[in-house]
Design a protein around this nucleic acid. Structure first.
Lengths: 211, 211
DNA sequence: GCAAATATTGACCAAGAGGTCAGGATCAGG
DNA sequence: CCTGATCCTGACCTCTTGGTCAATATTTGC
């Protein structure tokens, strides 16, 4: 904040920028970008509004920082699929990891959901660039496994979409899921069982359809 | 607008209320409730702002009218599952119908997605009431089929969630789907094939697991 | 312990947004 | 073709909100 070039951040800077982003995550994820106000973020973070703007030049900069800062973490499970591993196990692990992330980081899920819902104004480059490459690469791994007869043949891209849709649904539509199920349910545990079954049945190779 | 009791609407009233709701659907579905402005709605509808407020008392009333007006249409496919029909065919028809609705009415899908994402402030009663009853009823039908050995055993509620998640994903996350797939794709057509396969494999009864 | 850098805030501003209202235009029915 | 009801609008009000700034407090490094 002081020097023209990148200055190393103070301890206070580090802490305050972090608490601001933390508060902003809560607010943006539940209100969307336009619905959120700097006052809400400031209150959530326990700082005054001008103080928030002392650390970030504008509301949009807070938002941008949040998005880009969380993107890597969010996409990490996709990267960690092991092409040398057992295909079915790798898919199951990916599904389980994504589901757990929805349970443990629902705000992050909703943040991205909000952004994409509104047409992803700030993410289009990334979606069509980095993400697309990662997905294509991963789809190629799946395709390879299918060609080797180790995974049933389905459209690999839509396989990935289905995993995203099914796992993030429990975070993004939590209000609906809880209202419909009522109390006394552990949606994520039940979903885990359901999804295991679903992907086993979808992807297990049946002897009569190899080749 | 004139009488204390319900007066029959004029032709002009009918037309203008309809165009306002139509414009509001576009705006609310792409901006969320808080992000939308009456000015945007007015412009979208080709009316002046005060004129919009002449037909609806407030922004929230427009929104409320939209939501409740579209809810029946949105939930209709669930109602039309035939308990006397062939289980697998009925599920496939439901999936196909929901997918087509996402393709044909993406704004409606996004409108509800936005609302639920923000915690469904205006829909909680309906979600926990009407919707919950409908889902429970439908889940009971599925359960019956499973008990008869005509459908593989899976959690019926999560089966329904999965259909919602997978079909609406293509409308709600359209920006992402298109960015990742790139041009030259018909996401809905591909999804149709994928989902047919997915639910066949999930729900077809295997001889060795009946009982 | 003392300057210089850093951090914080109250007061303020301009633009935006929801909503009102008086008055004028238009339309329907007799 | 006239009158009352309906429809429409420009001007305006108020509250919110993103953002600024000068002044003050606090911390840091010597």
């Amino acid at each position: 904040m002081s020097d023209e070039s990148q200055a190393r951040p103070t301890r206070i800077q580090q802490k305050n920028r972090a608490t601001i982003l933390e508060g902003a995550l809560t607010v943006f994820s539940s209100q969307g970008f336009r619905g959120a106000t700097i006052d809400q973020i400031a209150e959530e973070a326990g700082l005054s509004k001008p103080n928030v703007l002392y650390y970030f030049a504008s509301k949009e900069e807070i938002y941008r920082n949040l998005l880009t800062g969380l993107l890597d973490m969010w996409l990490d499970p996709l990267r960690s699929i092991n092409p040398e591993g057992d295909p079915l196990s790798e898919v199951h692990r990916y599904v389980a990891t994504k589901l757990q992330m929805s349970r443990d980081y629902p705000r992050e899920s909703r943040l991205f959901a909000n952004e994409v819902l509104q047409g992803a104004p700030l993410l289009t480059e990334i979606l069509g660039g980095l993400l697309r490459e990662m997905v294509d690469e991963q789809a190629a791994v799946f395709q390879g496994w299918m060609d080797q007869g180790r995974l049933a043949r389905v459209d690999p891209h839509h396989l990935i979409f289905s995993i995203w849709a099914l796992t993030q649904h429990y975070a993004d539509f939590e209000a609906q899921v809880r209202a419909v199920l009522g109390p006394g349910h552990d949606p994520y545990a039940e979903a885990g069982v359901f999804l295991d079954r679903l992907y086993s049945n979808l992807l297990t190779v049946h002897p009569d359809e190899q080749g």
